[in-house]
Amino acid sequence: MNWLLVVAGGMAGAPLRFLGDRAVQRRHGTAFPWGTFAVNVVGCLVLGVLTGAVMAGAASDQVQLALGTGLCGALTTYSTFSYETLRLAHDGARFFAAANVVASVLAGLGAASAGVACAGALWG
């Protein structure tokens, strides 16, 4: 039964990633992959809040499977991040490639930490 929770979350996360990525990227006409960056940071924030909620006992294992593994797993995209970073480097935009790596890691960790802190303030 747990796999159905993951599938349900993934069914919501995948279209959210596609639509969010396209909406953000349309607003920015640069080579930098702002759409992927945005959905990955949002996914890290959501996963941080969820992790904090689970740690505080405010969310169940089933919610963690549906939202954490399913929704966030489909919303965030390490493969697209990697592809876009390599594409930037290959196209000669090495600064943007390096900036994408550094900014994505720092913003993702920051968003996850902020999410855990927000959950702690709400349920701690």
Rank of each mutant, 00 (worst) to 15 (best):
Y83R: 02
L50F: 06
A66I: 08
Y78G: 05
G92N: 07
R17W: 02
A53R: 01
V49I: 12
T76A: 07
A114W: 02
A58Y: 00
G29P: 08
G70Y: 00
A14I: 07
G68T: 11
G108S: 15
L75A: 03
R17D: 04
G43Q: 01
G73V: 03
M11Q: 09
F18W: 13
R22L: 13
R94I: 11
A107I: 10
A114H: 07
Q64R: 15
F37H: 12
S79N: 07
L47G: 08
N40G: 10
L47S: 13
L71Q: 00
D61N: 15
G9S: 06
V63R: 13
F18M: 09
Y78W: 14
S113K: 14
A97D: 01
L106N: 10
R87C: 01
G29F: 06
G68Y: 08
L47D: 07
V46Y: 03
M55P: 09
F81T: 03
D91R: 15
G35F: 01
V46C: 12
G108H: 09
A23D: 07
G10E: 04
V63D: 09
D61M: 14
A56S: 15
L75G: 00
A66G: 11
N40A: 04
A31I: 05
L88E: 02
L122N: 13
F18N: 08
R22S: 09
R87T: 02
L75D: 01
Q25A: 12
T36N: 05
A114N: 05
S79C: 04
G9R: 04
A14T: 15
L71R: 00
G115R: 02
L109V: 14
T80P: 01
R87F: 00
A93D: 12
A31G: 15
A107S: 14
D91L: 10
R27Y: 06
R94D: 04
Q62T: 13
V41S: 03
T85Q: 04
V102R: 13
W34M: 04
G13V: 06
R27G: 12
T85N: 04
A12M: 13
V49W: 04
L19A: 14
A119Q: 09
N2D: 14
G57Y: 11
V102I: 14
F96A: 15
R87Y: 00
G108Q: 11
A111I: 05
V54S: 08
S113Q: 13
V101A: 14
Y78L: 11
R27W: 08
A89P: 01
R17C: 03
H28V: 15
G13I: 05
G120Y: 10
D21R: 07
L45H: 01
V105F: 13
V7D: 08
V24L: 05
G43V: 07
G57H: 06
A97R: 00
Q25S: 14
V54K: 05
L88F: 00
